[in-house]
C-alpha cells in the first residue's frame, strides 16, 4: 500500500485559516490502512479544525466526507455536490488522490492533509516500512524476494557494499543491510549459486529517471 503520515496540524491550519468553508476528504484505501487519512482521521482533523475556528471566533464550516478511492474519477464525481458546496478541500488521500481531486475539481483549491511517504507494509501496529520504489523492472526473483532498490540505501545491485556491518547498514544501526538479508534468504533457499551471478546494469529508464510514467494496457483500454 501507499504509506502516508498526517501533516502537522499547525501546517494545515496555516493553509486554511482564511477559508470560510472547508471539506476534509478522506480515502478508504491505503491511507485508511496506514491510519493517516481514513474516515477516523478525517473526523479527528475536522473536529480539531472546528475547535480552532471556534476559538478564533470564526464561523468557518468544516465538512467531512470519505470516498472509496480518490485516485479514481468514478468515485470523485460522486462527491461533486459536496465538493462544490465548500470553498476548499483538504485531501487526506495520498499524493495521487490529492492530485486527482485537484484535476477533477479544477476551480477548487485542494490542500494535502498528509505527507505521502512510500510503498510499504505494516511491520506491526503503527510501524510501516518501505518495500518498493516502483522502479518498473522487478528484480525480486533474483534476490530472494528482498528488494535492493528499495531497501539498500545505495540501491546496490551486487552487494553488500563495504558499509555493511553485523547485518546493519552504515547509515543507521536501525537499518538492516538489504544485501545481508538477501544472502541470508538465498542461503535458506539453497540458492547461493544465484548470488554468484552478477546482476547486469539495470535499465533505469523505466524508473523515475525516464520522466513521469504511464501504463497502458491495450486489452482492457476503452
Amino acid at each position: 500500500m501507499i504509506v502516508a503520515k498526517g501533516k502537522p496540524l499547525e501546517e494545515i491550519i496555516e493553509a486554511v485559516k482564511d477559508c470560510d468553508s472547508i471539506l476534509v476528504a478522506g480515502c478508504n484505501e491505503c491511507v485508511t490502512v496506514c491510519e493517516a487519512g481514513g474516515s477516523k482521521e478525517v473526523g479527528i482533523l475536522a473536529s480539531a479544525l472546528r475547535l480552532y475556528f471556534l476559538n478564533q471566533g470564526k464561523k468557518t464550516q468544516v465538512g467531512e466526507i470519505t470516498l472509496q478511492r480518490q485516485c479514481d474519477r468514478e468515485y470523485l464525481i460522486q462527491a461533486r455536490e459536496s465538493v462544490e458546496s465548500y470553498q476548499m478541500v483538504i485531501s487526506m488521500a495520498c499524493g495521487v488522490g490529492c492530485q486527482f481531486m485537484a484535476e477533477e475539481f479544477a476551480n477548487k483549491p485542494v490542500q494535502p492533509g498528509v505527507n505521502t511517504m512510500f510503498m510499504g507494509g505494516a511491520l506491526e501496529r503503527g510501524v510501516w516500512s518501505e518495500r518498493c520504489q516502483g522502479c518498473g523492472s522487478c528484480l525480486l526473483a533474483r534476490t530472494g524476494g528482498i528488494c535492493p532498490v528499495a531497501r539498500c540505501a545505495k540501491r546496490v545491485l551486487n552487494g553488500p557494499c563495504g558499509g555493511s556491518s553485523n547485518g546493519k547498514c552504515e547509515i543507521s544501526k536501525d537499518v538492516d543491510c538489504a544485501w545481508q538479508l538477501i544472502v541470508n534468504r538465498l542461503k535458506a533457499l539453497g540458492r547461493m549459486d544465484d548470488y554468484e551471478q552478477i546482476i547486469p546494469l539495470k535499465d533505469w529508464s523505466s524508473d523515475r529517471a525516464g520522466g513521469p510514467r504511464k501504463v497502458v494496457k491495450e486489452e482492457v483500454r476503452q
Binding site: L9, E10, I13, I44, A48, L49, L51, Y52, N55, Q56
Partner: peptide
C-alpha cells in the same frame, strides 16, 4: 494535549 494546544483550546 498536542492537538488542543495547536488549536488554542
Amino acid at each position: 494535549q498536542r492537538l488542543l494546544e495547536a488549536v488554542g483550546t
